[in-house]
Simulated assay, not measured.
Amino acid sequence: MPLIHLEEVSPQTFIGLWKIEESAEYLEKKLQLKAHELSVLRSLQGEKRNLHWLATRVLLRKMLSTEEYIDCQPDENGKPILLNLPHKISLSHSYDYAAVMISLEKEVGIDIEIIKEKIDRVKHKFLSDTELAFIEKKHNLEHLYACWCAKEALYKLNGKKETSFKDNIHLNPFIFQANGSIQASISKEGGNREFRVNYRKFGNYMLGYVKGD
């Protein structure tokens, strides 16, 4: 399981990418899973889901550089939190990759996706008409995935189930590049929060990540 990328976003915030090449049995031996975690793991359907669950937690352990037990559990909205460590975390996975973001400063969000043509069929479900208008035809799929990853990262940072990709998370127009950033906002009844989301394309994958201000 090679760590292919570790990046310092700010002095106390990091993102990590890991290519999943080992078996579920191998990864499970790298963790200190308790009964409730084993119950969740055994309830997952399919080998790939097991691998993803295990790989994100092995990567999390590596990034935290600890041999101690990591108590990672979902909160009431399903957002993963650490009960015995001060770090804010976000986890993601797609096909052969696991991605993790950790911070001692602010809430964070990360998303990784393999690029597929199917996103073109559902773009109206997560982008407003204003956002659809700035999608470049020559980079259609990549531009759409940059938008999706940005919105998913913001959704994870926000950590509230009732947040709508289309109605509450808004992206400013941007020209697609292989490595870029997007000005974005989350608008809810309580106000409007502004963010800068980073994204990058590597191989046939797109990565998006954001740290709270």
Rank of each mutant, 00 (worst) to 15 (best):
K160D: 08
A55N: 05
P74Y: 05
L60N: 07
V58N: 04
N140W: 05
E105H: 13
L132M: 13
K156W: 05
R121L: 14
V108L: 08
P86D: 02
A98E: 04
S128G: 08
K138V: 05
I112A: 13
S128N: 06
Y97R: 06
A150G: 09
H139S: 14
V100G: 03
K88W: 11
I70E: 03
I110M: 05
K79H: 09
I115C: 12
H143I: 08
I110F: 08
N168D: 14
L91S: 09
P86A: 04
D129G: 14
E131P: 08
V100Y: 05
E68R: 13
K156F: 09
T163R: 03
H124S: 15
E107Q: 12
C147M: 01
L157I: 03
K62G: 08
E113Y: 10
E76K: 15
I110A: 07
C149R: 01
S65L: 10
K79R: 15
S90V: 05
E68D: 15
F134C: 09
A98K: 07
K125C: 11
L141K: 10
H87Q: 15
L144Y: 06
L104E: 06
K79C: 10
V100F: 04
F165R: 02
K138W: 07
D120K: 15
G159N: 06
T163H: 02
D71E: 15
T163P: 01
P173W: 03
A133P: 00
S164L: 03
A55K: 07
N77R: 01
V58P: 06
L91T: 09
L82V: 05
A150L: 05
A98M: 01
S103L: 11
F126R: 02
P80S: 10
T163S: 12
I114Q: 12
Y95Q: 12
Y155C: 09
E152T: 11
R57H: 07
K137V: 03
L82A: 11
E107N: 14
R121W: 03
S128D: 02
E105I: 00
H93V: 02
L144R: 05
T130L: 07
N168F: 11
E105N: 15
N84K: 12
E136K: 15
P80C: 09
A133T: 01
I135A: 02
K125G: 01
F126S: 07
E68C: 11
Y145T: 02
I112S: 10
L127D: 00
E142H: 13
K161T: 03
I102T: 13
A98V: 04
I70W: 06
N140L: 15
A55Y: 08
S94V: 04
K166L: 15
L82K: 12
L83E: 09
I81Q: 12
I81S: 06
A153D: 00
S164C: 12
P80N: 04
R61S: 11
Y95A: 13
Y155I: 06
L157C: 09
E162T: 11
L171F: 08
T66G: 13
L141D: 00
L132Q: 14
Y95E: 13
H143P: 12
I89H: 06
R57S: 08
H139A: 08
L144D: 00
Y155G: 12
K160L: 14
C72D: 01
I70V: 04
M101W: 00
A99F: 08
E113P: 09
D129F: 10
F134E: 00
H139L: 01
P74K: 05
N168T: 03
P80A: 10
